[in-house]
Design a protein around this nucleic acid. Structure first.
Lengths: 122, 122
DNA sequence: ATATTTGTTCGAGTTTTATCGTACTGATGG
DNA sequence: CCATCAGTACGATAAAACTCGAACAAATAT
């Protein structure tokens, strides 16, 4: 893999200068509280958001990074639910699809929400 | 109706000296964040909690007070869901079952949560 | 080119949740 | 006693959500 590839992994060399466009997601203003609550009512999804908040360093993570023992199609389902509700932003880096929490958007729209997720004990 | 009846309505003369026992509800420590999120992911239930927070004066409210145009059995279902998740406390006053938000419990356990509900715009 | 890797899409089965009519209960008032 | 009133319980139907296998797609590595 080339050091200058447009798709090299963000967790090896840090964030690339030019990020791929995010996958389709709701605009900040149209994130709905009830949809956010629905997305976070599923323990696996709550875990995803919490771990992204607590263990993310300066880069985004693939869904494989979490190490969940679930079929890939189940993970796709949950990540899509999180993105549709406005909780995560996803970008495609070559093969990988990396996710980060939309922290700024969520803090602006629902202050205090992410603190609750961080404090959650499974 | 007697002024000293054990079951007179709390919204006419204020809170009685001896409250009826609350209906079965989860203990404060066992209220689960994911269950709370699930309960609040339903717009009607979100409305119930918001209105109890915003429009409740010093007394609890019956489910009829909200004026929802839904069958009674549907309302029973949603109020039971809110109580099971630990969001409301319900007491029986004669015929009526009155609800209040478990504000202290929820603020202690999930600080900031109720503010999000208050700020919600349907 | 071919295999490997990461993740998607489709579709089916299962479980949960919502909706709501009907019948019922228990307290109150005449 | 009998009617009324607030709300429950039951049960059926319908809609949503979760789970997951199988087949597929696209980028990468050799």
């Amino acid at each position: 893999m080339s050091r200058v590839s447009a798709t090299f992994p963000a967790d090896v060399f840090g964030e690339p200068d030019f990020l791929p466009e995010p996958l389709p997601e709701p605009a900040t203003q149209s994130i709905r509280l009830e949809a956010v609550f629905g997305a976070l009512s599923e323990p696996l999804r709550l875990t995803i958001i919490q771990r992204l908040l607590l263990e993310s360093e300066s880069f985004d993570h693939t869904c494989g990074w979490f190490g969940f023992d679930r079929p890939k199609s189940s993970l796709t389902h949950h990540f899509k639910a999180l993105r549709a509700a406005g909780l995560i932003r996803q970008r495609q880096y070559g093969l990988e699809r990396r996710s980060r929490v939309r922290t700024d958007d969520l803090n602006a729209r629902f202050p205090g929400l992410l603190e609750l997720v961080v404090a959650w004990t499974p």
